[in-house]
Structures are given as structure tokens and as C-alpha cells.
């Protein structure tokens, strides 16, 4: 019998540090598969965030750099400007990229920085124990919005990929989800495309992935998936939000 599914070469043997059922791990695996399929493990430098994915450096077989909370894209920019022929990607939580690091998200995209950013949107700050994130939905309860996110006090959630898609330097922007086999396959296609866009040197590529946080949502892993579908998907619309002509011709 032949192995038709197993650990991709892009991942080390180190078990993920995520909570049981957390879909962070699925997204990491997809990146590991893409690194292997595009044969770019030896040419890639990843940048990890601060957050639940802060240990990504241990999980991938490529070189990795970790810095301050929210700064992965600035660090990625420094790496790419030094080594323009290498592949550089950042893996960041929604708090990391859409909260403390928003200025880099906007400007990295506007500059058309030839890097790839993967954002994991679980509508909450996971690592620090479930506080409100810029992506927390209206009415959603977190430890810092115990009565539900009040739009008058806390304002509206940010749909970052939608914003990024408006910037000229961003050439590929996709919003995907890690909730079901069908969506996971779509997510992988988007991630792969994003890396191919970088290989072709076309500009900034960005994939936002809807993900669960069973621990801080207070739901079982299975119920978390349903909660994501019922509550996040209507707000954060899935699909390829921006595909420039050059990317289409890839």
C-alpha cells in the first residue's frame, strides 16, 4: 500500500503546541504542504508572530525568525530587501496583524512588498486568554467584552483582507476558512497561489483564514466549527477578493 496522506516535508516532527481541535494546526500543515509541493523549503524564510503561533519556528523545516508582537511584516520586509531571491512569509494571528501591527499590514501591502502573509482570524486573542480582538464580532463575549462587543464603546470589527484588497500593491488577496474538508482544500489552493505570486515577483499576497479557538470560545472543537460557519462567515465573506490580471495569467 502507498501512503496517500502524511506529514509534509515542510513540517518538522515537533508536535503542534495548540489546544485540542484548534484549526491553527490545519493551516500550518497546509503551508507545510505548499512549501513541499513548490519545492521551496530550502529557499524560504518564515516569520512567526507573538500569539498562539509564536512557536511556528519549531514546526517548519525552513529557516525562521521571530520578533515582537505585530512586527512580522516589517521583519519580513527587512529579510526580503536583503535577500530578494528568497521566499519570505509571515504567519500571524488577527490581533498580531490587524491590531498591534495594522500599520505594517497596510504599508506592506501598499508597497507591494514581495512577501506572503497568512492571517489566522479566530476573532479573539487566543494566547493571552480570550480578550477582544479587532476581529471580535458585534455582541461577541470575550474576557474584555464580558457583556458582548458593544459597537458604541468598542467600534466595529475589521475585515482586514477587504481593506488590503483596496491597496494597489496587493495583487492577490483571498479569504478562506479551515472549517471543513471542502474549505480546507480551497484554503490550500489560495495559500499555494499566494506563494506562486511571490515566486513570480508580482507583489504582495495575502490570505486570511477563518479559524477556531475552542478554548476561549468555550465550545467543543466540533461546535466551534459550526459557530464559525454561523457567525463568522456571514461577516467575513469567503472568496478571492483580489486577483490582478497578472495573477490570473500565472
Amino acid at each position: 500500500m502507498e501512503k496517500v496522506f502524511g506529514r509534509p516535508k515542510g513540517l518538522t516532527e515537533v508536535p503542534f503546541s495548540f489546544c485540542p481541535g484548534c484549526t491553527h494546526g490545519i493551516i500550518m500543515r497546509l503551508i507545510g504542504e505548499v512549501l513541499e509541493e513548490l519545492d521551496i523549503i530550502e529557499d524560504t524564510i518564515g516569520v512567526s508572530p507573538v500569539g498562539c503561533a509564536g512557536f511556528s519556528q519549531d514546526f517548519f523545516t525552513c529557516d525562521f525568525v521571530g520578533g515582537p508582537h505585530g512586527r512580522a511584516q516589517a521583519i519580513g520586509t527587512g529579510i526580503k530587501r536583503a535577500l530578494p531571491d528568497k521566499i519570505v512569509f509571515t504567519y500571524q494571528g488577527d490581533g498580531d496583524i490587524a491590531g498591534i501591527g495594522t500599520q505594517h499590514a497596510i504599508h506592506t501591502a501598499a508597497r507591494g512588498e514581495r512577501i506572503t502573509s497568512i492571517m489566522v482570524n479566530n476573532a479573539i486573542y487566543g494566547m493571552t486568554g480570550g480578550q477582544m480582538a479587532p476581529t471580535t464580532l458585534a455582541g461577541m463575549k470575550t474576557s474584555t467584552s464580558p457583556h458582548g462587543r458593544d459597537l458604541v464603546i468598542n467600534g466595529h470589527p475589521i475585515d482586514l483582507p477587504k481593506t488590503i484588497a483596496t491597496l494597489d500593491g496587493a495583487v492577490y488577496v483571498a479569504s478562506v476558512s479551515a472549517d471543513s474538508p471542502k474549505n480546507i482544500i480551497q484554503a490550500k489552493k489560495a495559500i499555494k497561489k499566494a506563494f506562486q505570486v511571490q515566486q513570480a515577483g508580482l507583489g504582495f499576497s495575502f490570505v486570511s483564514v477563518l479559524s477556531t479557538c475552542p478554548t476561549n470560545w468555550g465550545l467543543s472543537p466540533q461546535d466551534s466549527l459550526q459557530w464559525l460557519r454561523d457567525n463568522m462567515m456571514p461577516v467575513y465573506k469567503l472568496g478571492e477578493l483580489k486577483v490582478t490580471e497578472e495573477v490570473k495569467n500565472l
Binding site: K3, V4, G6, P8, F16, C22, I26, S180
Partner: peptide, 19 residues
């Protein structure tokens, strides 16, 4: 039947499928 659906949704790459 080797459909790999279980492995696709596994968040910990804990499943291998052979066919």
C-alpha cells in the same frame, strides 16, 4: 475507503492514510 477526509481535518497531522 481511503478518502482522507479525517486526515484533512486533523489539526495535528496525527493521521496517515494508505491505499
Amino acid at each position: 475507503n481511503g478518502c482522507t477526509l479525517c486526515a484533512i481535518v486533523c489539526p495535528d497531522v496525527a493521521i496517515e492514510v494508505y491505499k
